[in-house]
Write a protein that binds this DNA or RNA. Sequence first.
DNA 1: CCCACTTCTTATCAGATGATAAGGAGGGCG
DNA 2: CGCCCTCCTTATCATCTGATAAGAAGTGGG
Lengths: 241, 241
Amino acid sequence: MTRASPASGRPAARLRLGSPAAKRQRAAPSSKRLAAAAREQQILAEAVRFFAEVGFNGQTRELAQRIGITQPLLYRYFPTKRDLVERVFKEVFLKRIDPEWSKLIADRTRPLEDRLVEFYAEYAQATYTYEWIRIYMFAALMGEDLNRRYIKIVEEKLLKPICVEIRHHCGLAPGDAPISEAELEHVWVMHGGIFYYAVRKYVYHSRVGTDFTAIVRRAVTGMLAGVAAIGVTAPSGRRGR
Amino acid sequence: MTRASPASGRPAARLRLGSPAAKRQRAAPSSKRLAAAAREQQILAEAVRFFAEVGFNGQTRELAQRIGITQPLLYRYFPTKRDLVERVFKEVFLKRIDPEWSKLIADRTRPLEDRLVEFYAEYAQATYTYEWIRIYMFAALMGEDLNRRYIKIVEEKLLKPICVEIRHHCGLAPGDAPISEAELEHVWVMHGGIFYYAVRKYVYHSRVGTDFTAIVRRAVTGMLAGVAAIGVTAPSGRRGR
DNA sequence: CCCACTTCTTATCAGATGATAAGGAGGGCG
DNA sequence: CGCCCTCCTTATCATCTGATAAGAAGTGGG
């Protein structure tokens, strides 16, 4: 009695839909028979939520159940599970770095601190969500290349521009010298510290501070003060130790 | 032809051990017949490495192959896979917070900056390893309770003591007022920023700065300067925004 | 009302995977 | 030397799980 016995199968799967009891999952009643495009979007949207929650080892049957469809229907829209997963990646990661952010960072008509605080407010709104953070971490642990590419973009389009502004902020000539490792790492610590707020919230499910803007402001202030106090521009690798 | 055909099975599995070719995995030749305790330790050690690498959905057969033993032998030492996983958790997380660290943090005969730099050097040595960081993140994403407990300990034994030292450092009376959310979050940003260095290194496999001590020193300096510049002690929740 | 097209379900497969049972093999002790 | 205890392997199970095939069911045009 390994597989389900052929004819005696479960008693009317569809009855369960109408029955008031016996719906363990939030299986949306889901108006049957959607247009193809709509169904595809529905699957994708729920897949993002599902994989964010349980990871990419989550099973297609459970995903289908959540959507309120049968598991084989997934394969009508996505040839393989891997295809679906990749669409999820794109859905999440292709929220590309907004070019407006680079402009905001470089807008020297405003104090750098204000720019950075506003930038992080917007950046957080775009990426510090349950789905984004968790999919990001799952993908990273899987060794997905998308992560490394994303990191590179963050460095080039956000962190290095911030370093440039810091030089300006400190009264240094913009200089053509490339951003040093020390400068970049200093900004990474701030960036990572702010990111880690989201990790604590969505990955650890830990209680976190309520006033995110205030946290960011202190982090930015500290970072700028640190630069002023220690000076990271000089490529003198040796400092402590 | 579903399962392997009974008698015609794979041609001499043991021959593969001796054969120079056809050993895809680093299957240690592994002197056969270890004492029970030794074998258990060997399995546990390799399990830590294995699960850190591929996550806890990694398969028992592959783990066994890496050790150079057969898969059923695992079950002689660990009744279920879950048991093995839990032992791995303990192996990793029971590297408890060293009480010496709290002492180090509170040693007011030395400048706070030096204490914190030294603390992070030691803390990093204990926990910023490939295995620890990845197992920690995998466990967190799985929703393991161990994480939350660990976070709590970090807050109580490390971060809050740091907050107390910061008050002292700023010339404030130690006060009996509990550490405010703002104070704690400010330290969390530094702590998270430093932790994130390890995440970039071991989870993202990203290139990171070489001089960790220097990075920590700048982060600490910035954090302290930030406190001085903005003052986090007052429970005035509204700051920016 | 019925045909044709699209959407969705039922039944099922084949390989993967955690786990178990039964017996072989090394090696020390009487 | 052979018994026996412990360690380890082979063979196999039962279930899970990604994927496919065949046909049922809804829907709109003529």
